[in-house]
Design a protein around this nucleic acid. Structure first.
Length: 703
DNA sequence: TTAGGGTTAG
């Protein structure tokens, strides 16, 4: 296709020999070629020739002047087009329409609507299907929903609503207004569809999350045998990705391969994305490896696929490969990188990325700022997260959410609520996720009344439907405040199906409040619901141990064996000078393990006078009494903390990460170690952050 | 005339 352009261009240039007696049709044809090939130089020389010869028949007749407007519009010279338009002694529909297209394409959609008004009221012209389609597009681009709908009514009366262009523009408009119903109405009521109508409907439904409806439309499209274009493929792969429907994705991919279609880079990245979202990193990689042309989007897509499937290191490694390939990262790439860094809790690596982002000038992108806040919050540096937040020039809803939930995870309820109130004051609308953070902040602060107010009243007034996560937060809120009966009653009354997580929230509250009878009843109920929930076995076993009900402990262990439920081993890790040191409980793999074990022993001996009592009840009863302390001493987080104290620079906070929830013994030991050593120790467990300082923890012993 | 890919919050 591309080869055709210079050829046509050359022909046009050869044909254009300035004479006094140039024919009108000739001029129009030459201008059309100049416009189509965006040859502004040729177009301008024809224009100047027209001015020089000043032939009345040519210089003032409509057709060549319309061609001039079209030329300037196609070459993005809107002021020049406007000038020609203004000097026309007489205009027809095409003159108006061409100029309107120019303004539409350059983003001045309000100007289009003004022109339309002048055309109808000033020149008394009746719009045709082209003009109508342009006006609908201008309404969608400028968000003029009311005007768009009114104009739709006008068009129906004028009888032009059946034209294919108009129909497609209408479907697109309703899709852009997030009015999937309106789009579907046009689509269903008016007969006759082409691939464009289907693409518009499908992408509208997809964007608004009406996935089942999109599948129905796709079925219909296939039934009618409409030929797919590359946009259809992109949209359908997007649909598969949202549905996580690997089967459908594979079918569509096979369809492409069977037909041996040439794929553009858009379709290829949609394929990589589909496999990534469906959990098929290997297939995503295969698609990626087969590409001849890889741009930044394809690279970012494959990194995102690795990230989404938990392969954080692979994602980070691809970053260097991409640079070797001479492709520069953009804001999306940095967002994926920061997320992978957060997944590894690699704070140092995050700092390095931050520097690179500043250098490459992507700091002012909202998604980069958001991902930075998220990274710092997840890596345990909430101070740095809040600094990035304060420095951000542009914020969106996610910015506020990430800061609110970041503070909440760190147990900083007051700070989280302050951010939430600022958010409202600045006119940003809270959404579903906002309230997950807000309700969990209420729970940290023990604000029962406020939390229930947000759930029952405030969320309704801002139009957010409460979901399972919110109900779970409220269960946490009630049970933390000691209202265990209310929490259970609440949980049994919620209008959505609840999962093990919600019940486990109540269960761990029973444990903290030492209400073992209640806890046992709940735990047994949860195990009936999910006989494989390891966390519940652990909690129930702890409850029995606390009550010295050894028969119960034995029963649980037997049950776990019978059901083949295995406890995940506790793993902790700490980053030290860019190296991550991993510790498993009771493990001696680390080259310095002898020194580390000695350090733990020394620390525990020194905190005993400060009030440390080893929680031997939590250890299985059949262990010899004198061995019980050893069982507790070498939990992975104690090893990691000891290593941190041995090697971290003085005054630097010790940041440790753990795969499971911290046990009570480690928690009370760490509080005292922070006091003994005068150090801040931050532990991220499976649930939240604990920030230990001077003998206290930010969780206030509730986790 | 209309339509399309990668990203961030729980």
């Amino acid at each position: 296709m591309r080869g055709l352009k210079p050829a046509r261009n050359q022909v046009a240039q050869a044909l254009f020999k300035p004479t006094r007696f140039i024919h009108l049709n000739h001029v129009v044809k030459l201008l059309k070629v100049s416009a189509d090939t965006k040859n502004l130089v040729l177009g301008k020389s024809i224009h100047s020739h027209l001015i020089v010869i000043n032939q009345t028949s040519l210089g003032s007749s409509i057709q060549p002047l319309n061609s001039l407007i079209n030329l300037y519009v196609k070459c993005n010279q809107i002021p020049a087009a406007q000038k020609v338009f203004e000097r026309m002694p007489e205009r027809n529909l095409v003159s108006w329409c061409s100029l309107m297209v120019g303004y539409l394409q350059t983003g001045f959609s309000l100007e289009v609507l003004k022109l339309f008004k002048n055309m109808v009221l000033g020149d008394g012209l009746k719009p045709n299907e082209y003009v109508i389609a342009v006006v609908f597009s201008a309404c969608s681009d400028s968000g003029k929903a009311l005007e768009g709908r009114q104009f739709h009514g006008f068009v129906v009366k004028s009888g032009l609503a059946f034209h294919q262009y108009v129909k497609n523009a209408l479907i697109n408009m309703y899709s852009k207004f997030s009015d999937a119903e309106g789009a579907m109405r046009v689509f269903s009521l008016v007969p006759g569809y082409d691939v464009y109508s289907y693409n518009s409907v499908l992408s509208g439904l997809l964007q608004q999350g009406f996935l089942n409806e999109a599948v129905q439309v796709l079925d219909r499209m296939m039934g009618e045998g409409v030929k797919w274009d590359s946009v259809t493929y992109v949209t359908v792969f997007g649909l598969c990705a949202c549905l996580k429907d690997l089967n459908l994705g594979l079918q569509v991919h096979c369809r492409i391969m069977k037909r041996d279609l040439e794929l553009d880079v858009f379709v290829n990245s949609a394929i990589i994305n589909m496999y990534g979202k469906c959990g098929e990193v290997f297939n995503a990689r295969k698609a990626f490896d087969g590409l001849k042309v890889r741009n930044v989007v394809v690279w970012t897509g494959i990194m995102a696929a690795y990230f989404q499937n938990g392969c954080f290191e692979e994602a980070l490694n691809l970053f260097s490969d991409m640079k070797i390939d001479d492709i520069s990262p953009n804001e999306f790439t940095f967002a994926v990188m920061l997320n992978s860094t957060a997944g590894l809790s690699a704070l140092r690596h995050g700092d390095v990325l931050y520097g690179e982002i500043i250098k490459s000038g992507f700091m002012d992108h909202v998604i980069v700022g958001n991902a930075l806040i998220n990274m710092y919050a997840k890596c345990g540096n909430i101070g740095a997260a809040s600094e990035v937040f304060s420095d951000m020039i542009c914020r969106d809803c996610i910015t506020w959410n990430v800061m609110i939930s970041g503070y909440s995870h760190h147990g900083l309820g007051k700070e989280a609520m302050a951010v939430f109130h600022d958010m409202l004051a600045e006119g940003e609308s809270p959404n579903y996720v906002t309230f997950v953070g807000v309700l969990s902040a209420c729970s940290h602060l023990g604000l029962v009344k406020e939390g229930l107010y947000y759930l029952n009243q405030f969320m309704k007034t801002v139009g957010v439907e409460p979901g399972l996560e919110h109900y779970t937060c409220v269960v946490g809120l009630l049970s933390k405040a000691g209202l265990l009966d209310e929490a259970e009653k609440f949980l049994r009354s919620i209008p959505v199906k609840c999962d093990v997580v919600a019940w486990r929230t109540l269960l761990s509250a029973c444990h903290v409040h030492r209400n073992y009878g209640f806890g046992r009843r709940i735990a047994e109920f949860v195990l009936e619901m999910d006989p494989n929930d390891v966390g519940t076995y652990t909690l129930l076993s702890n409850i029995y141990a606390k009550a010295k009900r050894w028969d119960g402990v034995v029963k649980i262990r037997k049950l776990m064996r019978e059901r083949n439920v295995k406890k995940e081993p506790g793993v902790s890790w700490i980053e030290m000078r860019n190296v991550t040191h991993v510790f498993v409980s009771d493990d001696c793999q680390h080259p310095e393990s002898i020194q580390i074990y000695e350090k733990v022993k020394e620390l525990l001996a020194r905190i005993k006078p400060l009030g440390y009592i080893p929680d031997v009840a939590a250890v299985l009863h059949d262990v010899e009494e004198e061995q019980k302390e050893d069982y507790l001493s070498y939990h992975s987080e104690k090893l990691a903390i000891a290593y941190g104290l041995m090697h971290a620079p003085f005054e630097a906070p010790i940041r440790v990460f753990k795969n499971l929830r911290m046990c009570e013994d480690c928690h009370s030991a760490t509080k005292l170690i922070s006091k003994l050593t005068n150090r801040t120790i931050i532990v991220r467990d499976a649930n939240r952050f604990h920030s230990f300082w001077n003998g206290c923890c930010s969780c206030a012993d509730y986790w």
